[in-house]
Amino acid sequence: MKILFVCLGNICRSTMAEAVMKNICSTKNLTGWEVDSCGTSDYNIGKQPYHLTLRTLKEHGIKDFRHKARQIRSSDFTEFDHILVMDHNNLSDVKYEAPKDCPANIEMLTAYDPQKAPYIVDPYYEEDSVFEDVYQLISRCCVKFVETYSKNK
Rank of each mutant, 00 (worst) to 15 (best):
N105W: 01
F5C: 01
I106N: 06
D113A: 03
M21W: 00
F145Q: 01
H82N: 11
H88E: 14
M1A: 14
W33D: 04
V143P: 00
V6N: 02
N90V: 02
S75A: 13
K116C: 08
N90Y: 06
P99S: 12
L30P: 06
S41L: 09
F77N: 09
I120S: 07
L52W: 09
L84V: 01
D133E: 13
T110I: 04
K68E: 13
T53A: 03
K95S: 07
T31D: 13
D87E: 13
D128G: 04
L4S: 03
Y112R: 11
C102I: 06
A117E: 13
Y43W: 15
D87Q: 04
A69S: 15
S92F: 14
K2W: 01
K63E: 14
M1G: 11
G46M: 03
C142H: 04
E132I: 10
G61A: 01
L91E: 09
V85L: 05
L52N: 13
N152F: 10
E34Y: 12
A104F: 10
D81K: 12
I120F: 04
G61T: 01
L91T: 03
D122F: 07
H82M: 05
V143M: 05
M16Y: 04
Y124E: 03
K68R: 15
Q71F: 07
A17D: 04
M16R: 08
F77V: 08
F65Y: 13
T40C: 11
D81N: 15
D81I: 11
I72K: 02
D87F: 07
H82L: 08
P99G: 08
L137C: 14
R70P: 00
K2D: 14
D42G: 12
Y43T: 11
S37K: 02
Y112P: 07
F145R: 04
A111F: 06
M21C: 11
R73F: 04
R66S: 12
K58L: 11
K68W: 11
V35Q: 11
I62D: 03
P103F: 06
A98C: 10
L84K: 01
D128N: 12
Y112S: 11
G46F: 09
D128A: 14
T15G: 00
I138K: 03
S37T: 01
K68F: 15
S74W: 01
D42L: 01
Q136F: 00
M86P: 02
V146Y: 06
Y124W: 15
N29I: 04
H51R: 11
M1D: 08
S14N: 10
I62C: 07
N23Y: 10
M108L: 15
Y43I: 09
Y112K: 06
N44P: 00
A104I: 05
E147M: 05
K47C: 08
G9P: 03
